[in-house]
Amino acid sequence: MIDNLRPGWKSLVGVLAAGAVFGAATSLANAVAHLSVDLESREATTNGWSIIEIVSVLLDSGWAWAGLAVLAGFLATRAKQGGLGARSLARGAVAGVVALLAATAVYYAVDTVVHDVPLGSYVYDTVFWWAASVTLGPILGAIGSCARRLGAIGVLAKATVPVGAAVQMVVIPPGRNEVITTIGQWVVWTTAAVAIGVMVVRFLGVQRHRNYSREADSL
């Protein structure tokens, strides 16, 4: 059935699915992380950690949610060719908002099941983050639509998430103790450094190839 949808609607379905999966995964990771540790123990407070806690800390970080919106903008425009037009930016902006709205709704819906509380318990939180989604989603989604470009604009757009993640690890360190904080920071910093390095190398390679082609054509 999805194959019969128009490209625009197919992209929307994909963005909604990505947001829903991310929201559900984040809620479940948080729940499992809380159940896996005894917060009343001294070890848990000072140096206890687990892999699921690291996953929870990373998924429930602001940079990860921002990355979802950027990814949505990229997915919504990846099939488009040609220059960076207003229509492409608009499509990415809408995708960023839709992904964050879906992720927020599913996150709190799963939370109500996991914690066995009425759905109304999260009305304020849902509305607050929906407002944030509508405010920031368009910017992040538009950045995602720029990430498909091969030039400097594309590199800067792709670098937005890893750079933002690295900065957040300094400004707002994750985790409930120093061990989790340190592990989370190094995971993000290492991944961000590798990602940015790959982007720069690829960009320089493309530029070198273009310069070589121009020189060859001029001969």
Rank of each mutant, 00 (worst) to 15 (best):
A152F: 15
L140S: 00
G154L: 06
L136C: 12
R176S: 13
T160C: 12
A132D: 03
A132P: 01
D116E: 12
Y107H: 15
L156F: 13
T135S: 12
T160Y: 14
W129G: 01
Y122L: 09
R176W: 14
T135I: 15
A152N: 05
A132M: 12
Y107W: 11
Y122C: 03
Y107G: 00
A147R: 00
T112N: 08
A157T: 05
V171K: 05
T112E: 09
L140C: 05
V170Q: 13
L136P: 02
D125W: 14
D111V: 11
I143W: 01
Y124C: 00
I153T: 14
L136M: 14
I172P: 00
A147W: 00
D116Y: 04
D125N: 14
A142Q: 06
V123K: 06
T135F: 14
V113R: 11
V113I: 15
A142P: 01
A109G: 12
P162F: 12
T126H: 04
Y122H: 11
V110L: 15
G144T: 02
V127H: 07
P162C: 11
V155E: 04
T160K: 07
D111G: 15
V127F: 15
R149D: 05
L150P: 01
V167Q: 07
G120A: 04
V134P: 00
F128I: 07
V127E: 00
V161R: 11
A132Q: 09
R148F: 06
G137W: 03
D116G: 02
G120H: 06
L136F: 15
W130V: 03
M169R: 12
A132L: 13
P174Y: 08
G154M: 04
G151H: 12
V110G: 05
A165S: 12
G144Q: 01
A132C: 10
G137S: 07
P173G: 07
A147Q: 00
P162D: 10
R149I: 01
A131M: 11
Y107N: 14
T112K: 08
A157R: 05
S133H: 03
A152H: 05
M169D: 02
V127S: 09
I172A: 09
A142C: 09
I153E: 05
V106R: 07
V163K: 07
V155S: 04
W130S: 03
V123N: 07
V167Y: 14
A131Y: 03
M169T: 12
M169A: 11
R176F: 13
P174M: 10
K158E: 06
V110K: 04
R149L: 13
V110E: 13
R148S: 05
L156S: 12
L156C: 09
I172Q: 08
T135H: 08
V171S: 04
G151S: 12
Y107F: 15
Y107Q: 11
A147H: 00
V123P: 01
P138F: 01
N177W: 13
I172K: 09
I139P: 00
D125M: 14
P162V: 11
P173I: 08
A109D: 09
Y108F: 15
K158T: 08
Q168E: 15
A157H: 05
P173S: 10
V113L: 15
I172D: 08
A147M: 06
G144H: 00
Q168Y: 06
Y108E: 05
V171M: 10
G151F: 04
L140N: 00
V117Q: 09
A152C: 04
G154P: 01
